[in-house]
Design a protein around this nucleic acid. Structure first.
Length: 440
RNA sequence: GGCGCAUUCGUCUAGGGGUUAGGACACAGCCCUCUCAAGGCUGGUGCACGGGUUCGAAUCCCGUAUGCGCUGCCA
């Protein structure tokens, strides 16, 4: 039987990181088994059913690199893939339950009569759990349809999973206690339940279920905040799962080959933004320049940096790639390379340019650089070091004022790389301009 | 309240009867170094508690505590 998994979010207008991880685990499981990954929109609550809200989910999943085989926008053999359009299907199954004598009316709502037996859940992650459902006081009969005819989650969720032929239901642990109720429904409908796997929840720094109000609870936060999809997906996997060999940075291909649903632990995890941030830097460091450019360009464009050609942009990106931690920081890191209109950090000026003798050293370096014909980071480095030697000063004595002269700051990419990207003329022009700021 | 699940450094985790309890983030110091990063080295902090079982328990069992979840005509 071919594996079929699904991600079934409610279109609330944002994609929760917990939901994203659930989607990721479902996607991984399906892809590992040559199965089918389905996207189903659970919009029984009409208010939530907007095109924009669905788009946020599509965008988030796409961004993470999770593609689905069947869904509202893709179609498929068991559609429609939005619950708001499946009322006839639910009515059909309601009739089956009705015929089986499983239903009764309560103030206009329809309830399912529990068989009142012990239900065993065999969970792929949590193991075997027995639920004693015999006491109606503690496990009341669930409502499956409201008086106004609208449907309740538990029922439509089960019906859809049956209709869409799900083989594995991988979802948050908050549904573990709902599972016996769902199994009662499967039994009443005469269907063998799918395999269940309940994954631990993601909590905020207070240890509470991560909610909309928590910073970083939405995938949009990471998309806009300059995180790479590879880092976020990687980090999400590491919450509750480990490759077991002390490795942290993993590519999606590696995760695909190593991930094992059965090895997912049962502990809720607190989302640690610091580590996600670190992982982001690690991925940026490891990724190709082309990929970095692809990811960084939207941020650069949004900042309105006039970089001219793509080649020029890539040349600039190459010298900041190893330093940048957030894609959103890129514009600030490269802006001075494309405009002379940068500001001088007063502190940097004070520390380097106002240092006694800075002007003389700058002039000496300028003279030396003037003679460099084949202008590359290698030749300018040689020129600078020769100058330092001739002056009898440490290279830092030249590097620091030069850095401030050409960039206005004390931190940035490697100085020689900056020189190379700037080119000889612009470098020297900036030296000249900085003279007025330098101390004798 | 009832039911379910969980409990290893601050955080994420490895380890599932005998380990100096390992790694990562964060933090501190040092090295490297043109800055910032990266990288390298070093350091501190941890098996919730109490009982068992056992020659031996972080590991198995039972309790307690704590946390989270469910207990909706939310999903």
């Amino acid at each position: 039987m071919t594996v079929r998994t699904r991600f079934a979010p409610s279109p609330t207008g944002y994609l929760h990181v917990g939901g994203a991880r659930t989607a990721l685990f479902n996607w991984l499981y399906a892809r590992q088994h040559g199965g089918t990954f389905i996207l189903r929109i659970e919009d029984t609550d009409e208010k939530r059913n907007t095109e924009e809200a669905r788009q946020v989910i599509y965008d988030g999943l796409n961004w993470l690199g999770l593609d689905w085989d069947e869904g509202p926008d893709k179609g498929g053999p068991f559609g429609p893939y939005q619950q708001s359009e499946r009322s006839d299907i639910y009515a059909k199954h309601l009739a089956v339950l009705e015929a089986g004598g499983h239903l009764y009316e309560d103030n206009g709502a329809i309830r399912f009569r529990s068989p009142r037996k012990t239900v065993v859940v065999e969970d792929l992650i949590c193991g075997r759990i027995e639920f004693d459902m015999s006491n109606p006081a503690t496990h009341p009969d669930m409502t499956i349809r409201r008086p106004d005819g609208s449907w309740i989650f538990h029922f439509v969720n089960v019906v859809d999973d049956i209709e869409m032929k799900l083989t594995h239901v991988i979802r948050g642990e908050d549904h573990l206690s709902n599972t016996p109720k769902h199994i009662e429904l499967y039994n009443a409908l005469g269907v063998t339940p799918p395999k269940f796997a309940h994954i631990p929840l993601i909590l905020n720094t207070e240890g509470k279920k991560l909610s909309k109000r928590d910073g970083g609870s939405s995938i949009t936060f990471f998309m806009d905040g300059g995180y790479t999809p590879e880092a976020v997906a990687n980090y999400l996997c590491l919450l509750g799962w480990s490759p077991g060999d002390n490795r942290e940075r993993l590519t999606m291909a590696e995760i695909l080959s190593l991930f094992d649903l059965a090895k997912v632990n049962r502990r809720n995890a607190i989302f640690d933004l610091d580590k996600c941030f670190w992982l982001n830097g690690q991925h940026i460091l490891a990724m190709s320049l082309a990929r970095f450019a692809e990811l960084a360009k939207p941020f650069v464009d949004k900042a309105g940096i006039a970089y001219g050609t793509d080649e020029a942009l890539i040349q600039a990106l190459a010298i900041v790639k190893a330093k940048v931690k957030h894609l959103s920081d890129v514009p600030d890191w490269i802006a001075f390379l494309f405009s002379d209109e940068f500001s001088f950090d007063p502190e940097a000026v004070e520390k380097s340019l106002k240092k006694p003798g800075a002007l003389g050293r700058l002039k000496a370096l300028e003279a030396s650089l003037l003679t460099v014909s084949d202008w590359t980071h290698v030749t300018v480095e040689a020129a600078l070091k020769e100058t330092a030697l001739a002056l009898g000063v440490k290279t830092g004595e030249l590097v620091h004022p030069a850095r401030v002269a050409v960039s206005g700051r004390s931190v940035g990419p490697g100085l020689y790389e900056i020189f190379e990207v700037l080119g000889k003329d612009r470098t020297l022009a900036r030296f000249e301009r900085a003279r007025s700021l330098a101390a004798e």
